[in-house]
Computed example of a mutant assay.
Amino acid sequence: MTRAVHDFLFTVYPYICLAVFLLGSLARFDRDQYTWKSDSSQLLRSGQLRWGSNLFHIGILFLLFGHTVGLLTPHWLYEPFISAGQKQMLAVVSGGTAGLLCFIGLTLLLQRRLSDPRIRATSQPTDIAILVVLWAQLVLGLVTLPFSVHHRDGGTMMILADWAQGIVTFRPNASALAVVDWPFKAHMVLGMTLFLLFPFTRLVHVWSGLASVGYLFRPYQVVRSRRLNLAADRTEPRRPA
C-alpha cells in the first residue's frame, strides 16, 4: 500500500463514509420511508431463522457497543482501574466470544438465504451482498485476535484508539497506523465501508431499533374499555322523566 493510498484510507475516507452514512440515511428516510425496514422471511422458513437471528443480533450488538466504548473512551478515564494490556486482553476474550456467536449466527442466516429457493427469490441483491460483507468483516475481526494476543502490552489498541478519537475530534493521524498489522487495517477499511453502504441496504432498520429506546420512556397510554362503559351505562339508575 502506497503512502498516498494509506493516508487517503485513514484520513479522508472515514469522513466520506460518515457523510454518506448520515446524509444518505436522512435522504432515504425522507424519500423512501416504505423501504425503511428489514423484510422478514419468517413465514417462508422459521426454524433456522430463530437461531441465526438471535445469535447474530446478540453478538453484533455487543460488538458495536464494545468497539464504540473501547475505541472512543480516553485512556486517562480507565487508566486508574485497568491497564492498557488488561483492557486489550479483556477485549480479546469478550470480543472473541461475541464475534464467534455473531459469526455462527450470520453463517446460518447466509446459508439459509442462499440455499432456500423461495427465500433467495424474494431477496434483493443488496440483502445478500450486505450479508457477505458482514461475514467478511467478522472473519477479519476474528483474524485480528491472534495478533492482539501477540501484542499483550496494549500498544496496538492504544494506537487504534488514538486514531479513532482523532477522527472524532477532526485530528486524524494516519501515520501512526503504519506499524499496525494488516488484518487490523483491512478490518478498519471494511468497517468504514459498511458505513458507506448502510443507507442503501436493509441496515437502515438499525436506526429504528435505536429510536425504539424512547418507547421505554413514553407516558402511559390511558385505555378505556367500551364494553365496561356500556355496562356502566346499563346499571346506572335513571331519573324518571
Rank of each mutant, 00 (worst) to 15 (best):
L210P: 00
A174L: 05
D162V: 00
F184H: 15
M89N: 11
L142D: 10
M158Y: 06
G95W: 02
D127C: 11
T122C: 07
L106Q: 07
V206G: 00
L77P: 00
L160P: 08
Y78L: 08
Q165L: 10
S175T: 12
L194F: 06
Y215P: 00
L142H: 12
T193Y: 07
F147A: 11
G95Q: 03
M157V: 04
P199W: 04
S83E: 03
R112P: 01
R113S: 03
A174H: 07
D127F: 05
I119N: 05
V189M: 09
V206N: 02
R202L: 04
A84R: 13
I104Y: 03
T144C: 15
Q88H: 12
V92Q: 10
L145F: 04
G95S: 09
H187K: 04
F217S: 10
Y220L: 11
Q86A: 14
L216R: 13
Y215C: 01
A136E: 00
S175Q: 14
P146C: 07
G155M: 09
R202Y: 07
P117T: 12
P219E: 11
L77K: 09
Q124R: 15
A91E: 09
M157C: 04
W207Q: 03
P172S: 06
G154Y: 11
G96A: 10
A211C: 06
H151N: 13
W135R: 09
T144I: 09
H205V: 12
V149K: 13
I104G: 01
D127I: 05
A121M: 07
F103H: 04
T122D: 12
W163Y: 11
S83M: 06
W163P: 00
A178T: 13
L138N: 02
P172N: 09
T97L: 15
P80E: 10
G166L: 06
T122I: 08
A161D: 05
V132A: 13
A211Y: 11
T156W: 08
A98P: 01
W135M: 12
V133A: 11
L100W: 10
T144R: 08
G95T: 04
R120D: 03
D116R: 04
K185T: 02
L142Y: 09
D181W: 02
